[in-house]
Design a binder for these strands. Structure first.
Lengths: 152, 152
DNA sequence: TAGAATTAGTTATGCGAATAACGTTATTCG
DNA sequence: CGAATAACGTTATTCGCATAACTAATTCTA
């Protein structure tokens, strides 16, 4: 593997990470959300009520991070947390009505972000992009091949 | 813009960011480096001695972050910092011999990382990848179009 | 059924990087 | 020249996410 090529790819990924986070934070600020929290809300919107361990798995963030995110979202009234009926250890997390409404706004922002992110790319490239990025992600993955819904 | 598509892209970018950072940290740990520090070393290797403001610009990280990274790299003996002769405000940063040697090891790791990251992709796709990622980055960029060396 | 191993969640702590505010040095302009 | 402005670097503080260590609940197994 040629170093210049490797360097170019790694640099590009590093930069994309930095900028994407910054831009996300910027877009989410008016809604009072921080990056990461929106992923939790969208996951709940997709999947329905989940326990925190499932969220941790789905979002690929560690359990303590889920605890913190969930606390803040609960304090803001966006989600509700309640003990699971069948497992006294688990905490079920679900969207409140307000949280669901907020999620719709996040979806709009998400579309706007994607639109500016993907500006200038062909429809074909855009269609291939998630699969390509997931391939990069899975290849770089430390743990498991992350097999939920293979969109590539 | 279709939400599912936007969501897929944004999710993929978020995940790639998380995993790439984690994998980078993992690879760099044996060298005693943390993610971000290696970018500074490689930039110095590419460009030669620079002042911190230039590094901040080149790496797209803020000045205080450069200060901290540089402090640690200096403490580890990888770089040298000295006042700029022509500007008493500026601090010139350059690689030590040890730092240069370390950089070579980082380059090897970088190649290995790219190899596993890009496994399974066609040569053609790999060649297009940096340009594609830079396009995403520039589009998402908050500040300027980041025009140094357009490899797309 | 009793004890070991596993799992859910939390607390404490560390690190990278951002912003805000500050002191110091250069530069620009009246 | 001297004052205002800008630029370089640092400190202080905050935020997100990670790991380590802990408690409590569940499941496995002997």
């Amino acid at each position: 593997m040629d170093f210049d090529q490797a360097d170019a790819v790694n640099q590009a990924i590093r930069l994309l990470s930095l900028r994407h986070r910054a831009r996300t934070a910027e877009l989410l600020a008016p809604l009072g959300l921080h990056p990461g929290q929106e992923a939790l809300l969208l996951e709940l919107a997709r999947t329905g009520p989940m326990i925190q361990a499932q969220l941790s798995e789905a979002l690929s963030v560690e359990r303590p991070s889920v605890t913190l995110m969930a606390r803040k979202l609960e304090a803001a009234g966006h989600i509700r947390r309640s003990p699971a009926p069948d497992d006294q250890r688990a905490t079920v997390v679900e969207l409140t009505d307000g949280g669901r409404a907020l999620t719709e706004k996040v979806k709009q922002l998400w579309c706007a972000l994607a639109q500016e992110t993907l500006a200038g790319l062909t429809t074909e490239t855009v269609a291939e992009l998630p699969g390509l990025l997931k391939t990069l992600t899975c290849n770089v993955d430390t743990r498991r091949p992350h097999s939920r819904r293979d969109a590539g």
